[in-house]
Design a protein around this nucleic acid. Sequence first.
DNA 1: CGTCAAGATATGTCGGACAAATAATACAAA
DNA 2: TTTGTATTATTTGTCCGACATATCTTGACG
Lengths: 282, 282
Amino acid sequence: MADRRRKPDPPAAPDDTAPVPEARKRAASPRAGAQRFSGTYAHVSLVNAIGQRIVRGDYPPGTILPNEAEWSEMFGVGRSVVREAVKMLMAKNLLASRPKVGSWVEPRERWNLLDRDVLTWYATSPDREGFLKAVQEFRHIIEPEAAALAAARRGEEQMQAISSACRQMGSAPTLSERTAADTAFHTAILRSAGNELLMPLGALIGSALESLFIFVTREADDLRHVQKLHEGIEKAILRQRPEAARRAVRRLLANTDQIIAEETIVRAASRSSRHAARAASG
Amino acid sequence: MADRRRKPDPPAAPDDTAPVPEARKRAASPRAGAQRFSGTYAHVSLVNAIGQRIVRGDYPPGTILPNEAEWSEMFGVGRSVVREAVKMLMAKNLLASRPKVGSWVEPRERWNLLDRDVLTWYATSPDREGFLKAVQEFRHIIEPEAAALAAARRGEEQMQAISSACRQMGSAPTLSERTAADTAFHTAILRSAGNELLMPLGALIGSALESLFIFVTREADDLRHVQKLHEGIEKAILRQRPEAARRAVRRLLANTDQIIAEETIVRAASRSSRHAARAASG
DNA sequence: CGTCAAGATATGTCGGACAAATAATACAAA
DNA sequence: TTTGTATTATTTGTCCGACATATCTTGACG
């Protein structure tokens, strides 16, 4: 779930580094079911909890969900909180509802899979491999063209944003910061492409990179190589060469494909070895 | 706004052609502001009203919106209805809010522009030309590749869905039905591509076609030509020729580009003639 | 000038009550 | 038996009022 609480633009934020208010006490007793997180509003917790369960497959499409009273009981929140959370999931087309029937899970092809939150839940679902495969294929479709458009139309500040992100990627001390810069790099390219419909896809790339960052360990040589690939993209856009940008992005994606493939093999091997161990011990 | 009230899958719907219950009486007096629509739930009306105003530009990004009490007053609904509507818009990233500050319009690049409802509001906004331009460019990126994937991976029933939609397009008696079949055709291709991330984009194509259907008059010759172009796509997918499918889609899109360009010229001309008339009379 | 305290105000949450929609059931009629 | 109709039960939809929480603003104080 994206952080809903950010400083609004108009009331200029004097200090955005202020710590998020933690340690919020709940008077309500934490009843059975999933726990509530302090520091977050109840409806946000609920949206995440229910959304994650749906995407994870706990309630397959067509299933009638627990009704409002049951959710309310399960999470120890008021009915209005449940209703607002359900409405948010409806807005993402994960749910629909009717009086006397209840709420049910919508068929998967209606889900707003490109939504930030839904992507996050998908990325942490058991089908992570399916997620990575789909996202990566999608990137192959989108990103080369986006880079080509960016090479053709990018403005001066946009170019600076791209270069800056690329530099930060190279000098990031931690993998986490590197991933953030990586996401910023690709998002900046999408923005530079001059088509606002492309921008929501930044969340897609971000969740893919984050998923890779969490599960894949990478060696120094590899990181250097990846950095060179990114610089190749930057250079092509800087020089306003659409075809070169397209090719450079394809090279990067091919590299990522390879990493995913290797990781998949490793995971499959460890899985089968676990199976073997279990079979041997059983 | 997509119709939220549909028959759920599990309780098999015996008759889906039953008329939507109209003529619902409101006890509450219709106060100032936008009117409520009978037959629809209040929160749906509110989501549409507020969402449309935001996308249309009535409240530019950064603007603090009226607070809950004011919306409540404006539309003559209770505060909970307002809150649920606002939550749905938050789920689409059009809004964010904070206690003591209020709700504000999020920067445009955070909007979930690929969402069905947001697209609908965008399509009816004053910037319809910008909308069509962006969507059409996006189609150029997505659809050729989707068709190529479909040609490579389509199943038997998926092929039947494509062919059926293509046939229905050819024999549709009204333009409205033709547009519906057209949308079904492209949606079926997206589904056949075997990447679920592509499926939400059906809404994009649908809204583009609907927008064209509403504003563009087309001649019989033109329609025949378009039909042939669609059949070319169908044939390529039927024969499982990815490259041919890609090319066929590009031909169709080039044709659509031309139609949009012509329409744009016509509208610009009528606009300037109106200006001229006004200038002459003023 | 900077820091901290108090007030003001918008959203967040709770609880209860009633309205509306509709699936399911019971029942009457053909 | 079948068909159509009224009743019932249940779930979501809406309203209201109260209070909690967050946080911007203001002002006192060092």
